[in-house]
Design a protein around this nucleic acid. Structure first.
Lengths: 212, 212
DNA sequence: ACCAACCTAATGTGTGTTCAGTAGGTTGGT
DNA sequence: ACCAACCTACTGAACACACATTAGGTTGGT
């Protein structure tokens, strides 16, 4: 608590509470368990007792680490946002490349992606607590994609007659849909479907041959 | 109850229980209200009290018409199946035509379509009560589409190098995804996105020009 | 008398949250 | 070395509330 000069308060690499870092360990396990359960059952039907049991702890123990069920949810969403931003050198190369990366991400952290899809569906209602969060995220995605396509058209690398807003909506729909489908039936050949669709996008976006 | 000769039990145009047909009326209203609520909130978080209130009745009143919450759900699903089969002269013309009809259906009965999408997401978990129903329906859709494409290839109307299973998966993903997206943001230009996607499918499926 | 269409009130279960308490470790003064 | 004060990581039991379901009653038409 005292200002000791060099010590920053947030990270604790000090010998200080070495053993008590086991708490942080549990905290992470709770988050992981919650993510897995949320992906399968959604928020409303996942109970603290369930999370607790699978984390090898009591219900009250979970509440010791996260002061309420809602706080736990927000902790998870924040984790997702963090992961999001770590990959958000977003508009790097071209569209196809970016979409390819997305496919990899699906398989890298299925719990995160799946949970997000389930949560989005659970918050479709305008009165749902997280509705605004998901809607604005959706709008941003749409806007980003649109702008991306528009840029490509301006620079001549994309076909000028494609309607950017419509194609962006289609792409977002495809992405959402393949998440849904994949969750329902994991035997789906994710990579192939992805590749095939992206290839078709490539053809649709190719500028007309310049035989003037 | 007495056999009165010509009377069949199902329709009641008789003066007999004329006023009591108001019960059937309420029953239908309950179903409609439930569909709307299910679409927005899903099954688990929609309560009988809510349905009752919006139908202008008491909770027990709802249970008078449907003996349990689960029975109500099945009644709704059966209604959907009925609606399904009324449009299931399925494999009529060609793929594009069928997909176009689907788009119209979206706008004709949004509650039914939306509710179904929400319910599907709620039953992703293999342990969920309706998981099997949704999974097998999904597999059937996949299979139907695949067969459809394969047929077109055999008869030479579709490009032979398209992988039927992969494209079928993509189409189903797109359909599911546009449902999700449309539910989250109803301002989405449903018809245009649909038309654009179908047009692109047309191009992808066109057989190679027969310059042998 | 009988039956459908309700209603109010009670019951039981599931679930988030609060409340006190326990075990063990660290800190700082003596 | 020792001790009081304090910390983190929990536990078990109690609480409060929401919800589906049940029990029993009322009304009105036939």
């Amino acid at each position: 608590m005292r200002a000791d000069g060099t010590s920053h308060p947030s990270p604790d690499p000090r010998p200080y509470a070495a053993l008590l870092a086991k708490g942080e360990d549990r905290r992470q396990r709770i988050l992981a368990v919650a993510k897995r359960l949320l992906r399968r059952q959604g928020w409303r039907s996942t109970t603290l007792g369930q999370i607790a049991r699978e984390a090898g702890i009591s219900t009250a123990g979970v509440l010791h680490h996260f002061e309420s069920k809602e706080h736990l949810l927000h902790a998870i969403l924040d984790a997702r946002d963090a992961d999001d931003e770590s990959h958000a050198d977003y508009m790097s190369g071209d569209l196809l490349e970016e979409l390819g990366k997305l496919a990899e991400r699906f398989e890298r952290s299925p719990d995160l992606v799946g949970m997000f899809a389930v949560l989005r569906m659970e918050n479709i209602d305008p009165d749902a607590p997280l509705h605004h969060r998901f809607l604005s995220r959706h709008r941003v995605a749409l806007e980003t994609l649109s702008a991306f396509i528009r840029d490509g058209q301006r620079s001549g690398t994309y076909h000028p007659e494609v309607n950017p807003a419509v194609l962006a909506a289609e792409i977002v729909a495809f992405l959402n849909g393949i998440e849904t489908t994949w969750l329902l039936d994991p035997s789906l050949p994710l990579k192939e479907v992805f590749r095939e669709y992206v290839a078709s996008l490539d053809r649709r976006l190719a500028p007309p041959s310049d035989a003037s």
